[in-house]
């Protein structure tokens, strides 16, 4: 377990997340791709904290902030899914052609 292997793992998670976020048609599956990207980001932040940051507490704080971002992404994403579903009975990205309905 070195910094390089940890960052490679983070890169793999981010890569899979990019694939998911770009390829999935269902809103919630798309959000799962975003979550995987943030998963890799958090792992990279902790890896840097552990190997390059000399134990600076801000490194851990950054991970907490990313966790908050993830919670916000989930909550807003689900709220938007509910709003879109109310308006259009849709759960696919293709069914939306504009930001307004």
């Amino acid at each position: 377990m070195t910094l390089a292997t940890l960052l490679l793992l983070a890169a793999a998670l981010i890569g899979i997340g990019i694939y998911g976020a770009l390829s999935q048609q269902s809103f919630v599956m798309l959000m799962m791709g975003l979550e995987l990207i943030l998963n890799g980001v958090m792992l990279a932040a902790v890896a840097f904290w552990a190997f390059s940051g000399a134990g600076a507490p801000e490194g851990q704080l950054l991970t907490i902030i990313v966790m908050a971002v993830m919670a916000i992404e989930m909550a807003m994403g689900f709220a938007l899914v509910v709003a879109v579903f109310r308006g259009k009975q849709a759960d696919m990205t293709e069914s939306l052609t504009g930001l307004k309905y």
Partner: peptide, 19 residues
């Protein structure tokens, strides 16, 4: 994305300052 980030992980020089 994986290749760019992976190349950075392998090629970049990060400070060696463990906890």
């Amino acid at each position: 994305g994986f290749l760019i980030l992976g190349a950075m992980a392998l090629l970049a020089v990060f400070p060696d300052q463990p906890v």
